[in-house]
Design a protein around this nucleic acid. Structure first.
Length: 548
RNA sequence: GCGGGUAUAGCUUAGUGGUAAAGCUCCAGCCUUCCAAGCUGGCUAUGCGGGUUCGAUUCCCGCUACCCGCUCCA
């Protein structure tokens, strides 16, 4: 850190991603998974500090979303009071869950990529016809899978490419042929390309981790690690309603691990293959859904701001209609200016979506195709593509005197991304101009006390005159309620710096006045200011610091 | 997935075809009464696997991981 500080020119500065990674490793926040075996791409382990920080982030989210919620009062801007609760569902669910949700189709197929246009096609959706090019060489023109009329599309492509006038008929050398019947793609012209031979070999493209239930491991036993926690909530919607005496509007929250076989894990823990989500599904009457959507956008933004993220580093971005997922009526991203993003660019922190009744209807009727309103996806025989459970998802709203399938607002946050954002935002190298005349730097993590891995550090000023004994007594008492540390090694200044670097909000120092008058000094991490308080007031002081 | 770069101690660096060096950190001891003091001592490293060589941390090949730029991102 001395080296880093030496290149600092401003009064304080933010760190690069490499410096953040180095810091996380050095101070016990995050290590590369399986590091002693050379590491494993896309996986990370949380060390002593990181585990505490992540636990605090999750706990703060859970408290603010679920346990501290008052269901008797309607917050400003909402149509009504509402209830909040939580579940913890299984990582492995019935495979039909992912077929109906759309994740199987989207996440697992043989795909071919086009080098030229960068488009990706499902291998089994591509077909085309053979023809002779201008030099008389064989050329396979592939049709766009989404073209309404493949023959018309192919004729048009051939006329344009080979200069065949409208008065002449296009003469093909073959009927419509699946790409799968070709030995290689060297003579294949991709649907949107200008040159042939731009397609890759078909590659399996499965973003869900596959496993097997039972020891036999046959194809019929295949199961998947969840790619999102949300579906576990939809599957249990009826259970929660039936067993909990809840009425809508109702939010069901869940925190847990999810798994995606990302093609390119990147940027430290920003995109990893195993990650933790904090998701909530808010079930409400359809006609109020937009109002709730707006409410949750603001409330989720406020959560990050209240916990100290700088406003200038956060952006709220509403998706364009063309960006929307197959299920969403509206989606807003809360984005953060991560240090690996270019200046002025932001990366996703949390998404808030209005999913309509898509999920509940899907799990009732079967996989829905994107349409307005959504309709059942059918296979070539007209049967449902993926059958739903057949269970009734209609809610009988006695208070409103109507029955409906609830609409769902989903704030879906990444716990790891939140952790990364809080770290990046809070970590600074500060230049302290004063102090003995020489330039002095300190690394300090200005993390919110609620999130701080260690809440307080307790020091005896020196190791004599009864100070260690008094400090240990205080430490023992505080430890019952908070994660506090005791340190008597090194000079007092060195101990302050060590505490600053891992974001300890306050250092409590025992000195000779503690022994004679029962007072201690509390030193603030951010202002460096000290004040003297009564020894007995330490718990109340810390409680106020954390909870405000 | 493509291209470029990197890999020596916990961190930041040095160096060498023949016993791997330093500063910081950390630990122990002495000292120390409020912001990284000082003294003494100590622990700890060439990412993994091949090849060339009498001998490889150094040269070559492969792999892995990380960083940067594209690509992708339910």
């Amino acid at each position: 850190m001395t080296q880093d500080a030496a290149v600092a020119t401003a009064a304080s500065r933010r760190l690069s991603l490499e410096e953040i990674v180095s810091y996380c490793r050095r101070r016990g926040f995050i290590y590369q998974a399986s590091e002693i075996y050379g590491g494993i791409n896309g996986f990370w382990d949380f060390g002593p500090m990181g585990a505490e920080l992540k636990r605090n982030i999750k706990q703060t989210w859970w408290e603010d979303m679920v346990t501290r919620h008052n269901p008797l009062v309607a917050p400003a801007g909402t149509p009504s009071p509402f209830e909040m609760t939580g579940i913890d569902s299984s990582i492995i669910q019935h495979p039909q869950t992912w077929r109906v949700s759309g994740h199987s189709d989207l996440f697992s197929d043989m795909m071919v990529d086009c080098h030229e246009t960068k488009k990706r096609y499902r291998f089994d959706h591509l077909a085309g016809r053979w023809i002779k090019d201008r030099e008389g060489n064989p050329l396979f023109i592939a049709a766009a899978p989404d073209a309404p009329d493949a023959d018309a599309f192919l004729d048009q492509r051939a006329r344009k490419l080979l200069g065949i006038s409208k008065s002449r008929e296009v003469v093909w050398d073959s009927p419509l042929t699946d790409l799968a019947e070709l030995d290689d793609f060297a003579n294949v012209l991709a649907p949107h390309a200008s040159e042939k031979g731009t397609l890759t070999e078909p590659r399996e493209f499965n973003l869900m981790f596959k496993t097997y239930i039972g020891a036999m491991q046959t194809a019929a036993d295949a199961a998947f690690l969840r790619p999102e926690t949300a579906q576990g909530i939809f599957l249990n919607f009826r259970n929660v309603l039936d067993s909990g005496r809840f009425a809508l509007p109702l939010g069901i929250a869940q925190i847990g691990k999810s798994f995606r076989n990302e093609i390119t894990p990147r940027h430290f823990i920003f995109r990893s293959r195993e990650f933790e989500q904090m998701e909530m599904e808010f079930f409400c009457p359809p006609e109020t859904s937009h109002q709730w959507y707006k409410y949750w956008q603001q409330r989720r933004l406020d959560w990050y701001l209240d916990l100290g993220l700088r406003r200038e580093n956060i952006r709220v971005r509403e998706h364009e209609a063309s960006e929307l997922s197959h299920y969403a009526l509206g989606t807003t991203d809360i984005e953060y200016a991560y240090p690996f993003m270019a200046d002025g660019e932001f990366g996703e922190l949390e998404g808030i979506a209005n999913r309509g009744a898509f999920d509940l209807n899907s799990h009732s009727m079967g996989r829905l195709a994107k349409a307005d309103p959504p309709e059942l996806a059918l296979d070539e025989n007209g049967a449902p593509l993926h059958r739903g459970s057949g269970k009734n998802m209609v809610y009988n709203d006695v208070a409103r005197g109507e029955k409906y399938v609830p609409y769902v607002i989903e704030p879906a946050a990444g716990a790891d991304r939140a952790l990364l954002a809080f770290l990046c935002d809070a970590l600074e190298i500060e230049k302290l101009g004063e102090g003995g005349g020489e330039d002095s730097e300190r690394a300090v993590l200005h993390i919110h006390p609620r999130l701080a891995p260690v809440k307080a550090a307790i020091f005896p000023l020196v190791k004599k005159e009864g100070m260690p004994e008094a400090a240990r007594d205080l430490f023992g008492a505080m430890k019952r309620k908070w994660n506090v540390t005791y340190d008597e090694k090194g000079s007092i200044g060195r101990r302050y710096r060590r505490a600053d670097e891992v974001g300890v909000p306050v250092c409590i120092t025992i000195d000779d006045e503690t022994i004679s008058q029962g007072t201690v000094t509390v030193r603030d991490r951010d202002t460096l200011e000290q004040q003297r308080i009564k020894l007995d007031d330490c718990p109340a002081y810390l409680d106020k610091l954390i909870e405000g």
